[in-house]
Design a binder for these strands. Structure first.
Lengths: 192, 192
DNA sequence: GTCTATAAGAAGATAGAC
DNA sequence: GTCTATCTTCTTATAGAC
């Protein structure tokens, strides 16, 4: 069985993506990325001209990844309510990483909001994917567009807060308890 | 009227505190701090031996500041419920800064959680002040210790989520709407 | 495309004069 | 205590051989 050859560019992006998530953007050097990707520092510059370039590429990579995931959810999960609950389920599934490193989407935005304000609007595109997806679900449940959007942002906000506190306290129990509370919030809202 | 002379150490801490909040820890250089504090780079090292030293000093400064604030709240605000609502009110009062830079407490922890894992537990001390304060209020309202602590963390979590999303979208309307929703949550909880 | 070698600059940190 | 001058190390980035 032949494993599909990954392009060097793709290997670099995946290495950098993980390093940025674990150690932060500013704290990650080209040396580290090159080592993790098993290429020389010089070769790196053949694929990416500046450090910002790779950040853009990483955001694109994540957007592509999330888009694929949400498309799959839409196709395989039948009801809007179940899709909303699937979003909440991310907290439990990725709980260990969230405890250790926070939410990949949230921490990237928080960091860029300080060090690279020009790039932050671009990174916000990942939030938009979830926001639009959730808004769609609430709209399909009969809520007017504006209300649907507010509920979508509310859910994302709760999700982000849980990640921040769970990360700060390294508390997986808190995370699971709050995920349950979020599920209950959805149940209450849709019971009316 | 004579203005009280601030110590150089205090001036450095305040300058660094603002720079760390606005631009991030790793992104702030000694040159920037020295410029803002109007001292030479060399003088800086007379007061702080390493960059970590100043981070510890900043956390101490913030802890002192928050401790003073919470003491004042306890003395001037009569009911536990009103004190809890005062916590929520922070969102509205500091909304403009939150939109621009996020929550000072949350973003510091998020950043240290990546770049300086050893320092993060120290910075968590600021969270603990609010956590203990809110736990006290819920306890005084008759909730058992464990439940009181869970509600305290729930409130902090909601507060953090609101800051992250409001910062990401630079949306003050969202922040105010969600602060109102949090107030309602408290009303509902205490109505029972 | 991939490499080695190296440049140019900024960072944190130190030494020592005043 | 405060300054200027300097050191060392690490960073991003480039040049040019293969």
């Amino acid at each position: 069985m032949v494993k599909k050859q990954q392009s060097v560019r793709s290997v670099i992006i995946k290495a950098a993506n993980e390093l940025f998530y674990h150690n932060g953007y500013e704290e990650t050097s080209f040396t580290q990325i090159a080592e993790k990707a098993n290429i020389s520092r010089g070769n790196f510059y053949h694929h990416f001209k500046t450090k910002e370039d790779i950040l853009y590429a990483i955001v694109d990579y994540r957007i592509e990844d999330v888009t694929k995931t949400l498309k799959e959810w839409t196709e395989t999960i039948k009801t809007p309510k179940a899709r909303i609950k699937r979003f909440i389920q991310i907290l439990r599934n990725d709980g260990d990483d969230a405890i250790e490193y926070g939410c990949p989407m949230g921490t990237l935005n928080t960091q860029l909001g300080k060090s690279h304000k020009d790039l932050q609007p671009y990174a916000r595109g990942i939030f938009d994917l979830f926001k639009n997806f959730l808004t769609d679900q609430f709209t399909q449940l009969g809520f007017p567009k504006k209300k649907a959007e507010q509920y979508a942002l509310h859910l994302i906000s709760r999700n982000q807060g849980i990640s921040v506190v769970a990360h700060t306290y390294h508390d997986i129990g808190f995370l699971k308890r709050e995920a349950d509370t979020l599920d209950e919030w959805v149940d209450q809202l849709l019971k009316k």
